[in-house]
Design a protein around this nucleic acid. Sequence first.
DNA 1: CATTTTTAAGTGACATTATCACTTAACGAA
DNA 2: TTCGTTAAGTGATAATGTCACTTAAAAATG
Lengths: 230, 230
Amino acid sequence: MELHKVMELKNTILQLFPKLNDAKGTDGINILEHSQQMTIPEGTTVFHQGDQCLNYLLIISGSVKVITRAENGREIVLYHITRGGSCVLTTSCLISSEDYPAEGITESDVLALAIPKPIFEQYMGESKAFRKQVFHSYGDRLIKLITLVEEISFAKLDIRLAKYLLVNGSVNTPIRTTHQALATELGSAREVISRQLKEFENRGWVQLKRGRIEITNHDALASLLPSSSH
Amino acid sequence: MELHKVMELKNTILQLFPKLNDAKGTDGINILEHSQQMTIPEGTTVFHQGDQCLNYLLIISGSVKVITRAENGREIVLYHITRGGSCVLTTSCLISSEDYPAEGITESDVLALAIPKPIFEQYMGESKAFRKQVFHSYGDRLIKLITLVEEISFAKLDIRLAKYLLVNGSVNTPIRTTHQALATELGSAREVISRQLKEFENRGWVQLKRGRIEITNHDALASLLPSSSH
DNA sequence: CATTTTTAAGTGACATTATCACTTAACGAA
DNA sequence: TTCGTTAAGTGATAATGTCACTTAAAAATG
């Protein structure tokens, strides 16, 4: 990578991956010097089952959704990787060369930093801060996945749907998504989502348009959630 | 730890954690010298939400189940840690000091090796083989959790139940468990498990006793599973 | 040994969610 | 404007979860 671009990115990266800041010497910068900046267009399949990984990917901007698919075509979103995140699944594959049962797709244009495998391994040995950063990503994913299992198993759909709506929209910023996408996000079926949304609409909590959901009563939706989620 | 015990355990450990075998110098042995062997009785809560971890735990023998609990008391088993496994959740906590939303309980008497945090960190830096071992554990758990999400979301209960029965029992070795434990294992409700088992019994596939399930027709149960699980 | 007490399992009614096989409506492009 | 595509709606039915119990087996106790 050219030097001026490195300098340009340096602060951004260190801001996104604060652990690198603690690294002795010039770790953070050296990693940048040996890495490659990538721009990936929306809708690209970044990885899928059976892929081999040659790079450790850090996301600078944009979002990647990681999904798993059933034989019948139904999908569920496992988690999203956003600004500051890294793909631990490919990392895992980087290290243990195992297959991962999931697929990653960019949800927007993504700017990422690709750290080549040898550099990654070198820094894993040299920098405690870098290790900490990588482990932190792992821990995050584990906790997200456990929380997902918990929600799928225990939480009722109306509550999960309400939560999603509240997190992703507000009274004056409608959510642009389809019922199908919502079903995938929550691991449900489109029809179920449609009916539940219709129920919310009947109660005057949301207003439905094709490809768009407007929240019209934030508080009513919020009152569905358990107190711990406030 | 006493020297003769170290020598006694060395081969077992290296056999269980083959990656340590590749470690340069005397890593594997040194880790043992600085670690402590622990015996934990059945039914002990090894860790629960909010705990602080001071050790990295390697399981030598026995089994720990990791569960998550809903507010209403319903539980689901996330995974089991068995011979050769390590507790990545506590590791994660070891490194990033975050809370984990789960609880670990021994299912049998457990023999474990506790590596103190400083030793763990030292070896993470020094030994590529040790890092690989630790990362491998992480990757394993991630994949297990993703597979669990997939099964909970997509697979039908009769199939999951049949699979469990086939994995944990055979025609002449009955499964000793309760319907409640089975429900927890599969993330379902006791009544649902009872009814499904009764259905299997009506078809002559199993025989039910209090606290015991005997498989009487292995092939019929196996015929439920999709071909990929054979 | 007989009798509580505890724990496991069974049951019916009902609620929620998933699936199937469609139809209807909205939008964009020709 | 019409046509093709994608999004959303619908009714019937199956599967699973929840609730409020009852029944039965095993364990503990006198």
